[in-house]
Write a protein that binds this DNA or RNA. Structure first.
Length: 279
DNA sequence: ACGAGGTCCTGCGAGC
DNA sequence: TGCTCGCAGGACCTCG
């Protein structure tokens, strides 16, 4: 389930493979992943465009597309839960074709594919105004040094919602999903259900430090693979081996041995936590 | 303005 | 064995 570290890995892997290349005539098997644009307009917008840049914003991959005579456009890929971006230098197998939502040939015979089994993912093609609005609607990047403890504290202090829900709110903070919210709160020793505004400033600082440490470690491990997530080169991530709480409900806490608890009470997502370590 | 809850999708695993 | 059912989840939408 791609969050910030997973999308960062995908973008880093793919960048040297696609930037500078031109897209040929793309095809789509499922256009229910599109929002705000019809399939013909979407496909026409990609056809013949050169990939000028590939970046990450929050949990999304952003292709900057340039075409002679056109203003630049952005292809925003939100992988959702089961989406992945891959480059093939061979024919696709039947299984690969079945789940390939978007296929775009590259100018050297390779193929850029957006694969998504459950199609919770979304694709957007935005002009510069649309991209500016999209970008403005998303909160600051947690790894941006400009986000200091005071600014992070203001984000948390402004909400009475459970601190875990605030961490995962993309309008307030970019890129953190269920896995890393669970892990950061455990590492910082904070009860996930505690209202964000009731945390002390020291807890804000600790949470930001732990969140950053975990996101960096997950990036270094190429992300967390439970089932579907693959890097830009089709490999599994390795951070699932380093998780302390996510996916470990009922197992002993790696720090104190207490049986880990779980709840669905926060944002209808699984929250796994240690009663003893997180207060 | 903010928060709660429903919706989209399909594969998989639990349970009968 | 074969079926049904519920769950997983990010972002968006509606309603209060």
């Amino acid at each position: 389930m791609p969050e910030l570290p997973e999308v960062d890995t995908i973008v880093r892997d793919l960048r040297p493979l696609v930037v500078g290349h031109r897209l040929g005539r793309p095809t789509m098997r499922h256009h229910d992943v599109l929002r705000g644009i019809t399939k013909p307009r979407f496909l026409a917008g990609l056809d013949g465009a050169r990939i000028a840049r590939l970046d990450r914003r929050a949990k999304h991959a952003v292709f900057t597309l340039a075409r002679h005579g056109d203003a630049p456009r952005r292809l925003v890929v939100q992988p959702g839960m089961t989406g992945s971006l891959l480059v093939y230098d061979r024919a696709l197998t039947d299984d690969e074709r079945r789940y390939a939502v978007l296929r775009a040939p590259l100018d050297d015979g390779r193929e850029l594919v957006y694969r998504d089994v459950r199609r919770i993912g979304r694709l957007y093609l935005l002009d510069e105004d649309g991209y500016a609005r999209y970008d403005a609607a998303i909160g600051p990047e947690p790894l941006d040094p400009a986000l200091d403890a005071a600014a992070f504290g203001r984000i948390l202090g402004g909400s009475r919602q459970a601190v875990k829900k605030v961490l995962m709110d993309q309008r307030k903070l970019a890129g953190v999903g269920n896995i890393y919210a669970n892990e950061a709160l455990f590492a910082a020793g904070i009860d996930p259900s505690k209202p964000a505004s009731r945390l002390a400033p020291a807890a804000h600082a600790r949470l930001l430090d732990e969140l950053r440490r975990i996101l960096r470690a997950a990036i270094a491990s190429q992300g967390t693979t439970f089932r579907d997530y693959r890097t830009g080169t089709g490999e599994r991530g390795n951070f699932q081996l380093e998780l302390f709480v996510y996916g470990r409900e009922g197992e002993p806490c790696k720090v104190c041995g207490t049986r880990l608890g779980a709840t669905h009470d926060i944002d209808a997502r699984v929250t796994v936590f240690c009663h003893r370590c997180q207060r």
